[in-house]
Design a protein around this nucleic acid. Sequence first.
DNA 1: GCAATAGTGTCTTTCAGACACTATATC
DNA 2: GATATAGTGTCTGAAAGACACTATTGC
Lengths: 246, 246
Amino acid sequence: MHIMMNRQNEPKMSELDRYPKPAVTVDLVLMSVQDARLTVLLQRRATEPFAGRWALPGGFVRVEESLDAAAERVLAEKARMQGAWIEQLYSFGAPHRDPRDRVITVAYFALLPRARFEAALTDAGDLTLATLEVSWEGETGGPVAALGPDGAALPLAFDHGDILSLAVKRLRGKLDYTEIGFALLPDRFTLRELQDVHEAILGRPLNKPAFRRRMLERGWLESTGERETGTGFRPAELYRLKPRKG
Amino acid sequence: MHIMMNRQNEPKMSELDRYPKPAVTVDLVLMSVQDARLTVLLQRRATEPFAGRWALPGGFVRVEESLDAAAERVLAEKARMQGAWIEQLYSFGAPHRDPRDRVITVAYFALLPRARFEAALTDAGDLTLATLEVSWEGETGGPVAALGPDGAALPLAFDHGDILSLAVKRLRGKLDYTEIGFALLPDRFTLRELQDVHEAILGRPLNKPAFRRRMLERGWLESTGERETGTGFRPAELYRLKPRKG
DNA sequence: GCAATAGTGTCTTTCAGACACTATATC
DNA sequence: GATATAGTGTCTGAAAGACACTATTGC
């Protein structure tokens, strides 16, 4: 295998060109919470390799684009969404993770409230919102299965199962010392909705008074003074995330 | 800019070849603790760009090599060490972080006890063990400065200052719920030495009885029955890390 | 016995879990 | 007032911080 490049009139090959280069992609673990379940956006592969299996949306990193920018672009192009909470997860680079060529992928996770998924899901038939089956299993959880609408496990392409597991693990780890959980909720939400999100991610029930105490003492929330409507019982107070300091 | 590649007799260009590829490197944040100070191995750059400035040891990822394997190889080649605790940190890919070409680097941190550094430091003159000046500053710390033997801050190459800051932050975050701290100690160590390592990394003093209680209750340690020698006062008990379960 | 650090007993403080209780909306 | 959930008061228990105390070695 040989590589030849036109580099701008350099007299000799620099060290950068001595070895063949891997391709670099970004893959997106685009998660949400619906009906107390953690979900992830998957795309059905039409072509080999792994035709028919389900993959995370991804794309190549362009030469003039940062990794974060590539992730944002993939979010916009493949999932037709923007403005998600987006964060680098980990880089996967086993030599034959893509059987065709050497491809290193930088995985990102992206979080959006469920309502923001609607548009993307209706107009592209190869996308699905899979439910993630996660058990508690001592703090960071075990393996993760992605279930289709019929409840059957979806076969995943490449090493995307590993990426998914790590995304859930990372999400769990950051949940209660960062503001990450709020990215899965609309602007105004009740404390119960917030607790539901946390329980869905952790895969276990939480103590209500303790949860409310902790969240309110963090100082991240402010009351809107408004309440839910149409509940049929006592409506809960609506909170919002305080604008970021600084 | 144009790229031409000989790919093994494929009839047409695959998507993988449509765009120019970035180069991919690994950079190593090789840390240790000496005299209650966190230290990092830096290498003085002899050539442009950033000639004379200090850089993390790094190298290109080869096509048949995983990212982890590349990090291990760089550890062996550039730092003449092996067997370190090694862990992927983050990938850095701003378009012009290397002014010559597009280079994406996957940063790793590696931890070794101080004694293991001796060989590498004596026979290569372009390496130095810089002291990291880290303040406590609320949990994860602020910016990090690398100080030379004379106490002056060393100017760093590329975005290696950012990588260094993130490495310290990550190390702090993982310190007390993983066994990572033991990677900086010899096989047998006293609880005071362990506490010194933790204090050096966190940049703040810890409570002795609470620290001892926590460490012993974790179940990670076992007593060797031996004691320090040559102290001039009551010698401390030597502990070792229990063999990993499973 | 003195010096110096190893190692511990125990009180206080903090915070999460448990659980029952009160509050308040719709109907 | 019945119902269903919102929201709270308070007890308990686990674990960290503080601080003083005892233990043990070399000299």
